[in-house]
Simulated scan of single mutants.
Amino acid sequence: MNANTIPFAITILALGLSVNIVFAQNANPQSKQTGPTQSEEIPMLSERLEAKAAASATRLPEDVRQTYARGIVTVRATGIEKSAKQVGDGAIDAQLSGWDGKSIKLSDLWQDGPIVLMWYRGGWCPYCNIQLRAMQQSMDKLENAGAKLVVLTPELPEKAKETAEANDLDIVALHDKGNAVARKYGLVFQLPKAIVPAYRDKLKLPQYNGNDAMELPLSATYVIDKSGKITYAFLDADYKKRAEPVDVIEAVKKAAQK
Score class of each variant (00 low, 15 high):
124 W>H: 12
113 G>F: 08
109 L>H: 12
49 L>G: 02
38 Q>Y: 04
43 P>L: 01
49 L>N: 05
111 Q>G: 09
68 Y>V: 02
87 V>T: 11
75 V>I: 15
114 P>H: 05
122 G>R: 03
57 A>R: 11
132 L>W: 07
94 A>H: 04
79 G>S: 12
121 R>Y: 02
27 A>Y: 12
60 L>R: 07
101 G>F: 12
70 R>C: 00
100 D>G: 14
83 S>P: 02
28 N>Q: 02
135 M>A: 07
100 D>E: 12
120 Y>T: 12
44 M>A: 11
81 E>M: 10
74 T>K: 13
30 Q>I: 13
34 T>H: 02
131 Q>P: 01
107 S>W: 07
29 P>T: 01
29 P>F: 05
82 K>G: 11
55 A>G: 05
78 T>S: 15
112 D>T: 13
112 D>Q: 15
137 Q>K: 11
128 C>K: 11
115 I>E: 05
126 P>Y: 08
130 I>M: 04
108 D>R: 03
123 G>A: 07
96 L>M: 15
113 G>Q: 08
66 Q>L: 07
34 T>P: 00
69 A>K: 11
91 A>L: 03
124 W>E: 13
50 E>D: 12
58 T>H: 13
75 V>P: 10
108 D>C: 13
41 E>S: 06
114 P>T: 06
31 S>V: 10
74 T>G: 09
83 S>Y: 03
110 W>F: 12
28 N>K: 00
58 T>D: 14
67 T>G: 01
51 A>D: 06
99 W>L: 03
123 G>L: 03
89 D>P: 03
98 G>Q: 09
31 S>I: 09
81 E>Y: 03
31 S>L: 15
105 K>C: 03
87 V>H: 00
110 W>M: 05
83 S>G: 07
124 W>S: 09
113 G>M: 07
114 P>E: 08
39 S>H: 03
41 E>K: 09
28 N>G: 00
46 S>N: 09
123 G>S: 06
35 G>H: 09
101 G>P: 06
41 E>A: 12
65 R>T: 08
48 R>A: 06
80 I>S: 11
61 P>H: 08
70 R>D: 14
97 S>A: 15
131 Q>I: 00
109 L>R: 11
74 T>Q: 13
36 P>W: 01
73 V>T: 10
85 K>S: 13
105 K>A: 14
124 W>C: 13
